[in-house]
Amino acid sequence: MQRRAVAVYVALFLLVASVAGVLVVTGESPEVAFDNPDHELSEGDSFTVEGDEYTLTAITVEEDDELGEIITGQIERERTAEQSETWANGSIVEVDDREWNVRIDDADSFALVEEQDFEALLAEDPNADNETVDRDGEEFVVVTDEDGDTRLVSPDEYFPAPEERSYDVGDELAYNDVTVTVDSVTSDEVTVVWMGPETLTIGVEQESMVTIGDTEFMAHFPDASTLTLSTDIDSYDAQIAQIEQFDQYGDGLWRVVIISVLSAMVLVGMAFMPSRY
């Protein structure tokens, strides 16, 4: 009689374990999905936010030993923005395909002094030696006249005076194919500014908040080739809550399976223990 009762309880526990196991195996975990996202994009697609155009330039998939598949994306926007460059006092800059020395004169102005190629100037003159000579610690250019006589000419007398261009704060000049404006002058450096193209880059990670302009989006990659952007943050939070609840139910069912099987095993073992009476 005792063993019959044990058999009934064992069958009951195994039935409970089977039902719980079936529910765990057949249950489908909910996934994040937006029915009507603000933007559904593939690589190369452009979209508009607050009147500005952005482009999804890349979707990258990487494999991680612990995390598995990691999907990231990159959004870019081409815009016009102020750019700047600083020239140190005494530095060399290239303007009009020529090199110039930056010479700061005072707090509001500076000059570009032409850098002369003395070797090239000497090479162009058939009546001058290609190199200067040193006499008693002074440098001279050796020049031959029509009669074949040579004479020594000081560099200041032989070479033409370098060209100088003076600029004040607010002046404009052509530089690197753009027009730049002298923004500030200090005793150490000159700053020029101009408006030019600039690329704004925004990195996107799976299920992360992304700020584009002044708008916040929830980013989601439903697959390795698609990015959805949604402003419905409440929907995302609700779906995450459902997923967490499903996981909790799954953990609970697994505990039911384990406890039921162990209970059945204990009852079977007790049923076959020899009685002292």
Rank of each mutant, 00 (worst) to 15 (best):
D129M: 01
E53Q: 09
R165T: 03
E138W: 14
A224M: 10
L200E: 15
E78L: 08
D147E: 12
P222S: 15
R4D: 09
S275W: 04
R79C: 13
E94P: 02
L262S: 09
E76L: 12
I233K: 15
E62Y: 00
V6E: 07
V113Q: 14
Q242D: 15
S260C: 15
D136I: 07
D117G: 08
E28M: 10
D117R: 06
T144Q: 14
S275Q: 01
A111I: 10
D52F: 08
E69F: 13
N130Q: 06
W100L: 15
D38Y: 02
W194C: 00
R255H: 13
T211W: 01
P30Q: 11
T215F: 11
R103C: 14
G73V: 09
E43A: 14
R4C: 01
A81I: 14
T186W: 07
D117E: 06
T48Q: 07
F221G: 10
D97R: 02
V49S: 06
V178P: 00
E85P: 04
I92S: 07
T231P: 15
E53N: 09
D105L: 07
V95W: 00
E163G: 09
S187W: 04
V49F: 01
L121W: 05
V257L: 15
D237W: 00
A7C: 07
G170C: 12
S187N: 02
I259Q: 15
V204G: 05
D38G: 04
G196V: 05
E78V: 12
W194H: 12
E198S: 15
S18I: 13
T181F: 05
S275V: 05
D223G: 07
V142A: 04
Y175F: 10
